[in-house]
């Protein structure tokens, strides 16, 4: 029975993978201008949308909450908390999406290197998985407790945001492995900002 189960499982596993292959969208020609524009867009998302200090500070600013609690009735306070929670969760989702894009780019580049290190790739894969999991954990915490549930969250976030953005910007320069001068000089506005 165990043998039958084993072979049935691997057979079913392959059929599941085949279903994913069948559903895999046939991409256009890789390395086209579209891919380059996507690359630039993802880089800009990481640098500009992922962790801008002003945005993070604003999302978790307790001054807003203090003002609302001191000057408005209960139902307005509840509405404020609900809306702020939505914004905070949306922010974590963006971080999650940014990490996914970073992963896409790393893999998109790493696959070309003959000197690719299996150990490094496995370590990075684990790190990506851990980070994506952490994002989900924070999202879950925000979902359960609201934007002000974790006492140190706001202060530490704001303190670290500026420093982090600088670090990220330096660290992510590798995401420009090839120049897109043609796009920069052309009509596409994607390449101008980064």
């Amino acid at each position: 029975m165990i043998t039958l189960l084993f072979f049935s499982l691997i057979g079913a596993g392959l059929l599941l993978l085949l279903a994913l292959v069948a559903g895999k969208r046939s991409a256009g020609v890789e390395g086209t201008a579209r891919a380059l524009v996507d690359a630039r867009h993802a880089l800009r998302t990481l640098q500009g949308e992922l962790l801008p200090p002003g945005l993070v500070e604003r999302i978790f600013a307790k001054q807003d909450f203090n003002f609302v609690t001191s000057a408005t009735p209960q139902d307005v306070q509840a509405l404020f908390l609900r809306e702020r929670k939505k914004v905070a969760i949306c922010w974590v989702r963006q971080v999650h999406a940014g990490v996914l894009k970073l992963m896409d780019f790393h893999l998109g580049q790493a696959r070309f290197y003959a000197k690719l290190s299996l150990a490094t790739e496995m370590k990075l894969a684990l790190n990506f998985a851990a980070l994506l999991f952490a994002c989900r954990l924070v999202q879950f915490a925000l979902y359960l407790g609201g934007p002000y549930a974790v006492p140190g969250m706001v202060r530490r976030t704001v303190n670290n945001a500026a420093r982090l953005c600088e670090t990220s910007e330096q660290a992510l320069t590798f995401l420009e492995p090839f120049r897109v001068d043609g796009l920069s000089n052309g009509s596409t506005s994607d390449s101008g900002s980064s």
Partner: peptide, 21 residues
Amino acid sequence: LASGTDGALSAIRSHLGRAAR
């Protein structure tokens, strides 16, 4: 490439970790 990715990951992880603590 690998160290760049690792650096970016560490930065984001540190940010998230500190934010959630």
